[in-house]
Nucleic acid binder design. Sequence first.
DNA 1: ACCGTGGGTTCACTGATTGAACTCGTCTGC
DNA 2: GCAGACGAGTTCAATCAGTGAACCCACGGT
Lengths: 170, 170
Amino acid sequence: MLGKDYEAQDCSLARALEVIGERWTLLILRDAFFGVRRFNDFHVHLDIPKAVLSDRLSGLVEDGILEREPDPEHAGRHLYELTAAGRDLWPALHALLVWGDHHRAPNSRVFKHASCGTPLDDHGDCATCGMTPAPQDILTEPHRGRRALRHDPVATVLRAPHRLLEPIET
Amino acid sequence: MLGKDYEAQDCSLARALEVIGERWTLLILRDAFFGVRRFNDFHVHLDIPKAVLSDRLSGLVEDGILEREPDPEHAGRHLYELTAAGRDLWPALHALLVWGDHHRAPNSRVFKHASCGTPLDDHGDCATCGMTPAPQDILTEPHRGRRALRHDPVATVLRAPHRLLEPIET
DNA sequence: ACCGTGGGTTCACTGATTGAACTCGTCTGC
DNA sequence: GCAGACGAGTTCAATCAGTGAACCCACGGT
């Protein structure tokens, strides 16, 4: 989003939008929840210009949403992981996914409670267990019968069922 | 948000962002939930350039989020009201408000279940009644003891407790 | 007829995004 | 030990979106 601040607005929504309101930011965070952690994985999966990705990632790190740490397996590389504040964005992200699923792209992806397999309702709740699973207890996979649009390595990996926040291997 | 589409992303989040991801859009919708319906009220409350406001309002109408109808009291004027699809965005908006409230601007605004007065929890639920009130059953007011930043007529009206979606009088 | 207000549109300026090209440090294979 | 590939950026010109001031028109009141 252009001009990232809304300082004249005295409202917690305006403050939230200053963090996640810019173009690409929420898609980056979606991928982060799906387990993407490397610069190049974000890049190939999102078709985002590297300059913008670089800018967004450092902005998110600065805002305390992501943490950048050295990759133990590859000298000179980094991993971007969600902080606690970043993980707290899951309900908002899920609500938007649900809205898009209802009104624009039906049945694109399924979220289930990992411990019992029940699909989450629109509220993000597990009806069987009567609770709201945290992201790390949610299993996700694309809806069956869906034709894949993307064929990059990250999209392929994300087509297998896996837990949110669990790092993907490419 | 710049460049409004994310067509390469096969994801309901991308579709949702094409609708509400542009700069100002979510603040316009917040005001719509708060009862703002007239072009000028949005304009004085948001400090948004008229050209952008005009563009966003017609975009939201085109996307089926708002409905533009003639103002019965003033010939030649219009009212913008949320459609059912627009009202369905409330959970996402509320989740972002909650996040901003927790992490950026504590205690900015209170939401209560209109029928029992219980403040909603972070999930948007009423603990007393064990349900999730729809927007029209939610009462909102600024948090007490908060100093007002804005002094336009719309901000003044919004400082009084009122139900979501209930048209404001300026 | 004149003025003020609401609801826009137009336009020049500024700032953000894009994508291609370039850099620099590691790793991999020979 | 060196060449080439790869990951992770940075730089830069062209393009596109947002900004705000100025302008326009319709209506209502005096």
